[in-house]
Design a protein around this nucleic acid. Structure first.
Lengths: 148, 148
DNA sequence: GTCAAAGTTGACGCTGGCGTCAGCGTTACG
DNA sequence: CGTAACGCTGACGCCAGCGTCAACTTTGAC
């Protein structure tokens, strides 16, 4: 018997910087189901893990419903469901990889803009600042147009 | 004189699979500002570029307000603002990289689950089902590769 | 005993991001 | 000429995801 560590609702809330209200809400929506000690919720290590997944899901833009579906796929123990689960996983991966490409494109764009800004700032240390400003503006416009 | 190509609201909406209502909404929020021909909106190539950036921003989980702020950074033409812009860009990059890690973790998790499901299916499957599983695998690979 | 801290269940409120009318004007066709 | 297709501006509606009470209980410290 390990007599695992457990968490109260506010402990978990603090740790992950959400409110207790949010945790109850997730429970309401079927994403969490902590045990009870009388009325009080008692979160296990596994519940904590699920919460992590929930929050990660949110950060990458999934709705609570979508997160629930993914979490529910863990419960697969029937073969028919396993086939369906496989498909869903696969589809999710495709979507995530597209999203990662979006993010990488965004990062790259920001990096380029930073470079432009830096050279702009260097130049404008000299008296030729006004011309550099114009140049930057032109560049920025071009980049907007070239966004294919 | 190039007399550039322009777009009507519904053309642009169809192309990007959003509704005209959404485009008007973005305008309301200051993310787009197409010219007018009388009452009618006339979208330029640049407007189209901005729209792409807006939609990409949405896909990676930014709010319209955040997207607007990023777009507004293009307008930098004052040195004081350039410094601030630099900071914002850098902060965004940090956030995006964290998000990319989240996504990569999610993808990895899904891959692991898929492995589990596959071995489960192979073990518990009749020869027929096993064949089906292999077939699915082929399909899945194709789909991944075709996702450009 | 009592007081604060932490828990509970409703129930209503608010924000973001549009959807969905209603009511109206403008070409453009047959 | 009607009417269909497209556009416009309000203005209200709707859902997700909690925030924010209210009203009450349970627990531990003093």
């Amino acid at each position: 018997m390990k007599s695992e560590r457990t968490y109260t609702i506010s402990e978990l809330a603090r740790e992950f910087e959400v409110t207790p209200r949010a945790l109850r809400f997730y429970e309401d929506k079927g994403l969490l189901s902590p045990r009870r000690d009388g009325m009080n919720r008692v979160y296990s290590h596994r519940d904590r893990g699920r919460l992590q997944l929930i929050l990660r899901g949110k950060r990458v833009g999934l709705s609570l419903l979508e997160i629930k579906e993914l979490l529910d796929l863990y419960k697969v123990d029937q073969r028919a469901q396993a086939q369906a689960a496989l498909k869903k996983y696969q589809a999710r991966i495709v979507a995530f990889e597209a999203q990662r490409e979006d993010i990488e494109a965004a990062i790259e764009m920001l990096h380029e803009n930073i470079e432009k800004l830096k050279t702009f700032l260097e130049k404008s240390a000299s008296p030729a600042a006004l011309g550099a400003a114009r140049a930057f503006e032109q560049e920025a416009k071009k980049r907007l147009e070239d966004a294919h």
